[in-house]
Design a protein around this nucleic acid. Sequence first.
DNA 1: CGTCGGTTTGATCCCTGTCAAATTAAGTGG
DNA 2: CCACTTAATTTGACAGGGATCAAACCGACG
Lengths: 236, 236
Amino acid sequence: MTRAIEPMLQGSRPRVATSAGAKNPQIATTELDNMFNLYSFVQQFQPNSTIVLHGDPASMIYRVESGTVRCCTIGADGSHQIFCFSNKADFIGISDIEQWHFTAEAVDCVTLRALPRDVVERELKVNVQLRYEFRLKLVQLLQRREEQLLTMITKKAPERLFRFLCDFASARHHAHGGAIALPMCRRDIADHLGLSVETVSRAFSELKRSGQIELITCEKFRIPTPPDTKSLLMVG
Amino acid sequence: MTRAIEPMLQGSRPRVATSAGAKNPQIATTELDNMFNLYSFVQQFQPNSTIVLHGDPASMIYRVESGTVRCCTIGADGSHQIFCFSNKADFIGISDIEQWHFTAEAVDCVTLRALPRDVVERELKVNVQLRYEFRLKLVQLLQRREEQLLTMITKKAPERLFRFLCDFASARHHAHGGAIALPMCRRDIADHLGLSVETVSRAFSELKRSGQIELITCEKFRIPTPPDTKSLLMVG
DNA sequence: CGTCGGTTTGATCCCTGTCAAATTAAGTGG
DNA sequence: CCACTTAATTTGACAGGGATCAAACCGACG
């Protein structure tokens, strides 16, 4: 199959559509997205199934179509450290060469599109735009980790959780005010934020108590639109 | 000056020496090192002087020749978060495009070699090997941050410090047993490990007490060779 | 309706941050 | 060379946040 799509790539190399940048203008994901749209195949994963395993040959690059994936390393004692949750439109495998440097597991029912890595690698050799996208994504990934490092050190549990919830909401393209369902359990959130389950739960309670979030059920929350100066003026 | 060295690059593109891999065999830094050896110029920095400033145009790539550099972000309140200390042979600027995404400051007297970025960028367009080196370094940088994230969360102060000291020792190419001088102050170490100065100091005392390190002076330490099975057998 | 896993809440302990003081180191000027 | 100043490091006391252990609560499911 790799062989089948390779010659097609040579000719096409679309430089036209810069469509994806609607809500994230500075990121042009066109080339890689185009390759996925044209040459990838669909794969389904059940909740908690393993998608890629740390150390295995990284023969594919994935794009999340639906569902949520947790990317983590698993310690010798079985403890998880979740670096990120990947949602719709996120790529998995940008940061790996030859081998997977982490494990990816399905949080809920996950649909992925898979693109053979050697196809991407071959295209990288001839496509300047794709190379730039790759590099940009890698750099952004690094900067994200550095931000995480910073919040881990400086912020307390409730704020860490609040930021995570806001990030997750915006990753799901939810405006403030809409109810959002969390696909992952408290344990996953704890492993992502570097906390214990109990502390995560307490942080939820704290955020609820202080009115920063509303908890409809244990896995559905809402971030109430903060009353800004304008709406306050309109009320008064 | 950029203009002056550009045509030279076109012709040369040395692919010969794979010399640098003596103690780090899997990393071939040949291409980038060659560019530095051939086309960079030397710059000196006094202790605590700013080398690059977060947000400024990243017009250079640097290689540390001597001294130690701290790479950090500085919060609005003036707090530093030091992501890494760069020592001899380390590069600065691999992870940046257009702008610096961090601030770099000289810890002690620092000698750098500077290479104009546009020269590197131009060479990247035509040099496959250099591209691979860049990508590999970026990926390794990312993996290092993820390791840091993990130790920050799971390890307590004394072990964090111990790992840092071991890493620093090996970065300085010191075998176990030799005395090593720390160029940076306690404040810097604290900002790197996400601790307070006092806790760092206590961690030093703790490591000294437990015999994991020897403190000759406050800035000179030694990691005693742990008695392995062999030497134990020889004694007994 | 009972079981089981996930979530919440409670009680306690330990690590680390903070404030404060003591000690050491490094200059500086006489 | 010594007295004095000043910064850096170390140590002490205390309080707060989070981990841990334990129990209660809740929801899904057979």
